[in-house]
């Protein structure tokens, strides 16, 4: 199970605040309802989209197929130089 606690919490809380907490503080007026819907839908769509990207990679079934030059570059610049 390749889930990690921190990112899931951070992004869920972030979009939760936008979609659940913020609507309570929407300014009063004729547009209050619209602002609430906008906030909730934004949070829902963005969270779902992030979640899908995260879960699709939790347990990858295939690994990236790279050319050796790219791998050498990755090893040098992304840390973990090869032996």
């Amino acid at each position: 199970m390749g889930a990690s606690f921190v990112p899931i919490t951070v992004f869920t809380v972030l979009w939760g605040v936008v979609g659940i907490v913020c609507p309570f503080f929407a300014p009063k007026g004729p547009n209050r309802g619209i602002i609430q819907v906008v906030l909730m839908l934004t949070a829902a769509t963005c969270w779902l989209f992030w979640l899908c990207a995260y879960m699709a990679q939790m347990n990858p079934l295939i690994g990236p197929r790279l050319s050796n030059e790219t791998l050498i570059w990755i090893a040098r610049t992304w840390g973990k130089p090869y032996a």
């Binding site: 347990n59 079934l61 295939i62 690994g63 990236p64 197929r65 790279l66 050319s67 050796n68 791998l71």
Partner: peptide, 9 residues
């Protein structure tokens, strides 16, 4: 030695 290499999850 190898041109294309796949990383294994």
């Amino acid at each position: 030695e190898n041109k294309l290499l796949q990383l294994n999850p």
